[in-house]
Computed example of a mutant assay.
Amino acid sequence: MGRIEKLLCLISLVLFVTLFSSTINVATASVQEANALITWKASLQSPNHSLLTSWVLPPHDNISTSTGPCSWYGVTCNFDGSINTLNLTNSSVNGTLDNFSFSSFPNLSYIDLSMNNLFGAIPHRVGSLPKLIYLDLSTNQFSGNIPPKIGLLTNLETLHLFDNRLNGSIPQELGQLKSLTELALFKNSLSRSVPASLGNLSNLARLYLNDNDFSGSIPPEMRNLVNLVELYMENNNFIGPIPATLGNLNKLTVLYLFNNHLSGSIPREIGKLKSLQSLSIETNNLTGSIPTSFGDLSSLTLLYLWNNQLSGPIPKELGNLKFLNYLELSENR
């Protein structure tokens, strides 16, 4: 056999060994991930009454890359057979995450467990999912604090924890989620001040903090959220003035601050928000006059200022708002 033929044989042998080794590793990973899901399923209440009946191991754990967990309800895999998506929204899942082995899923990038009956605490171990991009635990019955370890999920783009029973404060570690574009924490019992570290979320487009028990002032650091499109902070206990620096958020289309305890005058800088479509700051303790700069809000369709202590005339500049459909100024001075 010539030198070239020997070289080709050697290359073929190396490729075969590499491929064989890779197949073994993938199969091992599939077995590990499948067993982790089966263990969690076994801990759930009435697991066979949910949509997880397809979660069954084949005889002798004979899991291949083409079957096994990749064919189970709510599970999808990468091309190599490793689980990357777990989507069990509205699947009648009843139980906790106490026995969910987060570390068994190194390639998991998408988790949606919303609209189920999950309860108990959100485990700190969720922070071991370094590739996670999307996490939705909304519309369940989770209680306790938001684990600070969520701050380790630096690739996270969407975090939905709304409509639960979470309490305590927002951990300052959430400010480490620099990739985050949507943060939804509404309809919980979260309290205390909003941490200044949220001002580090420069990619954030939508922030939902409404319907909680937050107190203190609106952090001035929010001026750094330059990509913010929608801001919902209504139905809380915020005090102090509306920060004039909110006028820097020139991409804002929605600003809801109603039903708080905000005081002082309305900053004229709000008139710089040329993209603003809905401004709702009723039911506060705002004083002074309506800024004439509101006439520059050329995209505005809704303006609610009622139930404050505003005084002075209605600015004639409001006549410039040709797209305005809803205007409510009652219960003022």
Rank of each mutant, 00 (worst) to 15 (best):
S91G: 13
N164V: 03
D112T: 07
T85S: 09
L166A: 11
S103L: 09
V75Q: 00
N62A: 11
N48K: 13
Q172L: 12
L97P: 00
G168K: 14
N167I: 08
V56K: 10
G144R: 10
S114A: 12
S54R: 06
G144M: 02
K131S: 14
P147C: 08
L152W: 15
W72P: 00
D112H: 04
P147F: 11
T85M: 01
W55N: 01
P123Q: 10
F100T: 03
S50Q: 02
G68Q: 01
N145G: 11
N167D: 13
I111T: 09
N140P: 04
D163N: 15
P123V: 09
S103P: 00
S169P: 04
F105H: 03
L132T: 01
D61M: 06
T67E: 05
L51G: 12
I150N: 05
S169D: 07
Q172P: 06
N62K: 11
L135M: 10
L159H: 07
Y110P: 00
W55Q: 03
I146L: 08
N90G: 12
I83A: 02
L88W: 14
F119A: 04
P47Y: 13
L113N: 01
L97F: 11
Y134E: 00
I146Y: 07
D98Q: 14
V93M: 10
S91C: 11
N107G: 04
F119Y: 15
S91L: 09
L88H: 05
T89D: 08
D136Q: 04
S50T: 11
S82P: 01
S101C: 03
L156S: 07
D61F: 12
L108H: 06
T65S: 13
D163T: 15
N48R: 13
P47F: 12
T85L: 01
E173W: 15
T76H: 05
L153D: 03
D98E: 11
F79T: 00
T154F: 09
N87M: 05
T139A: 03
G151Q: 03
L166V: 09
L137S: 02
P58D: 05
V56S: 05
D112S: 12
R165E: 08
N164D: 08
N87R: 15
F102K: 06
T53Y: 04
S104W: 09
N48V: 08
T139V: 09
D112A: 10
P171F: 14
L57Y: 06
P59I: 07
S91R: 10
T53L: 07
L174F: 11
D61L: 07
G144Y: 14
I83E: 02
T65Q: 09
Q172C: 11
T89G: 07
E157A: 12
L159F: 11
P130Q: 09
D163P: 03
G127T: 12
G127N: 10
K131Q: 08
S138K: 00
F162T: 01
I133N: 13
W55L: 02
D112N: 15
D80C: 07
L132D: 03
L97K: 02
L118T: 07
Y134C: 01
G74R: 05
L174N: 06
S138F: 01
I83Q: 02
I146R: 02
S82G: 06
P58V: 15
S101D: 10
Q172Y: 15
F142T: 00
L161D: 08
C70Y: 04
S169A: 15
C70P: 01
T158I: 14
S109F: 03
K149Y: 14
Q172A: 14
G120A: 08
A121S: 14
T85D: 02
G81H: 06
M115V: 15
L113P: 02
R165V: 08
I146K: 05
